[in-house]
């Protein structure tokens, strides 16, 4: 086992990563099974779609849904979460711009990531890989794309607070380059934030 995420155990076997969505004792059986199966299926499907859209992701090698297991190629690299605060300003902005570009590509293909954070993006060589599509979906809705951006913005705020503003600005630069409808999504992001319970103009 190489990792224990919130919802899955991750094993490495040669060059293959085996991601097993394990049963959760706290959930009722029906809900537990439904969530694990849907997410396993979605993850495999969305990773393939994302690759086709030109976003770096692992290769899907096998899906075994009765066991809620996905096998994919191993991406050797570092989670953005672990390096962003230590990176030089130039690298930091370049990485965020690149995450923005890839997100723009996803959104122009109506692919919603669902959990876009610096934990789910990996720097390998000079590429940024996107992983963990289990909460994602295919959707044209401006709202869903706006929430994707909000989730990313909040991961900057909670984990890279010193750089939130500059990083998000760089993200938007990359995003707007790849996605024509970016203005609508940014406008919706603002509306979603205003709807939130704790939004203050300061942020």
């Amino acid at each position: 086992m190489i990792g224990k995420g919130a919802e899955a155990n991750i094993y490495l076997s040669g060059e293959r990563v085996i991601k097993n969505r394990i049963s959760k004792a706290y959930r009722v059986r029906e809900l537990d099974e439904a969530l694990r199966k849907t997410r396993t299926k979605r993850e495999a499907r969305l990773i393939s779609l994302a690759r086709r859209a030109g976003v770096a992701t692992p290769f899907i090698l096998d899906v075994n849904n009765p066991d809620t297991t996905v096998e994919m190629s191993f991406v050797e690299g570092l989670q953005i979460k672990k390096m962003l605060n230590k990176a030089s300003k130039k690298d930091r902005l370049r990485i965020c711009r690149e995450i923005g570009r890839s997100t723009g590509r996803l959104h122009s293909n109506n692919i919603i990531h669902g959990d876009l954070t610096t934990s789910n993006t990996i720097l390998a060589g000079d590429k940024i890989y996107f992983i963990d599509f289990g909460l994602g979906e295919v959707s044209e809705a401006v709202e869903d794309k706006g929430v994707d951006l909000l989730v990313f913005k909040k991961s900057l705020r909670s984990t890279h607070y010193k750089f939130e503003k500059e990083c998000f600005k760089a993200f938007v630069e990359g995003y707007s380059r790849e996605y024509k409808a970016y203005r609508d999504i940014l406008e919706r992001l603002r509306i979603i934030e205003l709807r939130g319970r704790y939004f203050t103009e300061r942020f």
Partner: peptide, 24 residues
């Protein structure tokens, strides 16, 4: 009744990791 938040302390602040997007 009014709040739903997941928070943890890091470097000088209680950071909000998760919260409700609408009602508590």
């Amino acid at each position: 009744g009014g709040n739903t938040q997941v928070t943890a302390y890091t470097e000088g602040r209680y950071r909000v990791f998760g919260e409700t997007l609408d009602i508590a």
